[in-house]
Design a protein around this nucleic acid. Structure first.
Length: 262
DNA sequence: ATGGTGGACTATCCA
């Protein structure tokens, strides 16, 4: 049975409860993975989503920061989380569907402003987080797995509005791209979005600080859908819903979709 | 080189 999955950094699920409901109503993905819920699990407005058919939810939360959740129309079993880099943050959760597929939902640390771990502890934590992801995928090579989330890195030149101007900007520095690539390679992960849309500029995030985000279009592709090679061939129909960035009181991220025939 | 905006939560941290 095919299912459609979406990933969206919502930047407060409580403030944007209505936008989540709008996306669920208009696009009706079978599964929606959220990041930056910024809410304890018990305060996620689950009733609204349940009424729309999303009767299953697994989540990790904390007050004010981070937080990941998976809303699903299909049963999903909570199969745990990992505290990479021992930050004590709610940045990962994994769930298993009845068809045997595992979904990893990640919110990788943003990494602060300066791309230098000597002066910016957050940048070091981001690199350490990615290194521990790599080591985990190396030790327990994932199968029949999908990895989504805000990975806070735009790896390709055509994943940013200006490769040259962003080489020293956190999210596109060579060392981050290298660390993300090592984690990807360790799991054998296929970049599903780029499998489906191999050519051209592709963004999922536009800063709040740019007043005319649409016209300026200084975006980055920070949000990703990956799959292990055994099921990557079943993926198709990837798209990024850019128009969602233009909704009233939006998140700074747009949702990314993919369909899997499993 | 700087500041620009937005969210959580009360003065500042984080993105």
């Amino acid at each position: 049975m095919p299912f459609t999955l979406a990933t969206w950094n919502i930047n407060s699920v409580r403030l944007r409860e209505g936008l989540v409901a709008d996306l669920l109503e208009t696009e009706a993905p079978d599964i929606l993975c959220l990041q930056e819920c910024k809410s304890p699990v018990e305060k996620i407005p689950m009733e609204r989503f349940r009424a729309l058919g999303y009767t299953h939810m697994i989540a990790r939360g904390q007050k004010g920061y981070n937080g990941v959740a998976i809303l699903s129309k299909m049963p999903i079993e909570d199969v745990g989380d990992k505290d990479f880099a021992s930050l004590g943050h709610a940045r990962h959760i994994a769930g298993r569907l009845e068809n045997g597929a595992t979904i990893h939902n990640f919110y990788v640390p943003a990494g602060g402003d300066k791309p230098d771990r000597e002066v910016n502890e957050k940048f070091g934590q981001k690199l350490d987080y990615l290194t521990e992801m790599r080591d985990w995928f190396h030790a327990e090579r994932p199968e029949r797995a999908i990895l989504v989330g805000d990975l806070n890195i735009a790896p390709r030149e055509d994943d940013v509005w200006s490769h040259k101007q962003l080489l020293k900007v956190v999210s596109h520095t060579p060392i981050e791209v290298e660390h993300l690539g090592a984690a990807q390679e360790a799991g054998g992960w296929v970049d599903v979005t780029r499998k489906d849309i191999p050519e051209g500029q592709l963004y999922s995030w536009w800063s709040y600080r740019s007043p005319d985000w649409d016209a300026a279009d200084k975006g980055r592709r920070l949000d990703h859908v990956w799959a292990t090679p055994d099921i990557a061939g079943a993926a198709h129909g990837s798209r990024i819903l850019r128009e969602v960035r233009g909704w009233t009181q939006p998140s700074d991220h747009a949702p990314v979709f993919a369909t899997f025939d499993l």
